[in-house]
Amino acid sequence: MKILAFAGSNSPSSINKILVEYVAKEFKTQGVEVLDLNDYEMPIYGVAREQQFGVPQKAKDFAEKIDAADLVIMSLAEHNSSYTVAFKNIFDWISRIPGRPHWGDKDIFLMATAPGPKGGINVLEAATARFPYSGGKVVETFTLPKFKDNFDPEKGIVNVEKAKELAYKIGKIKERFELKVNV
């Protein structure tokens, strides 16, 4: 099983990147590649720009990473109750590649975290509603509110209930892929 993981943020100190890297370690035996959105920075999408220059190679490269994966793990940062500009721009560009669904008909473990009590729930709900229309099969979701209170760099998730919830969902995903491999 090949896994692609990334945070929907371009912040060098992204708490969503910390979360996605933490979760990716739980799949270490499956082969995980963690991407940094900063490596896929492109001009802001626009129809005129696309008509003049076409789809950037970095968008095609990002799409190839999705296409090569069996599972996509992403943790979306929330800006003004929605996607970050960095994530949305990549999403917009990959949507313009002819002949492929945006998320490649891949299973997605969708997460979000935030410093506040809602834990990025708005962006999580928006993506959960939107991604199935874009070739993404959201198989599990997870949100971690109050990141600084509930996550310790040495111990991981310190909120017992949230740690149990995450472990359960990771277990379900692993079980799902074991069934796919053995069919």
Rank of each mutant, 00 (worst) to 15 (best):
L76G: 06
D152E: 06
A163C: 03
K148P: 01
E154S: 14
Y133T: 14
L110C: 11
A68Q: 12
R176C: 07
D67W: 00
N159F: 03
Q51R: 11
A163I: 01
V123S: 01
A167K: 15
Y83I: 00
D152R: 08
I121H: 06
F91N: 09
I94C: 04
V34T: 15
T143H: 12
A114Q: 10
P145S: 04
M74P: 00
E165F: 06
P117E: 04
S134K: 09
D36T: 09
A69E: 02
D61A: 15
P153Q: 07
A163R: 15
I121E: 15
K162F: 14
K169M: 05
K162N: 11
K164A: 13
I97Y: 02
I121C: 04
I173H: 06
K58Y: 06
Y168I: 03
L35W: 05
S81Y: 15
F87W: 11
T128H: 03
Y83Q: 01
G119E: 14
K164M: 07
F109L: 08
V72I: 15
A127T: 09
A63C: 08
S82Q: 00
A127W: 04
K174M: 11
L124Y: 06
K148D: 13
K60L: 13
F87E: 00
G156I: 11
K172F: 05
I90Y: 01
N150D: 02
N122W: 00
T113Y: 09
H102C: 04
A69W: 03
F53V: 02
I121R: 14
L37A: 02
F87K: 02
A59N: 08
E154L: 14
G171W: 02
R100N: 10
L37K: 03
Y83W: 10
P153F: 08
V123E: 02
A68L: 05
A68K: 13
R100K: 15
V139H: 07
G120A: 03
I90H: 01
L166N: 12
N80D: 15
V47F: 08
N38M: 10
E50H: 03
T84I: 08
G116N: 13
R96L: 09
P145K: 04
D149L: 14
T143L: 09
G135T: 14
M74K: 00
P132F: 03
G135Y: 12
A68D: 12
F147T: 11
G116A: 11
G54N: 11
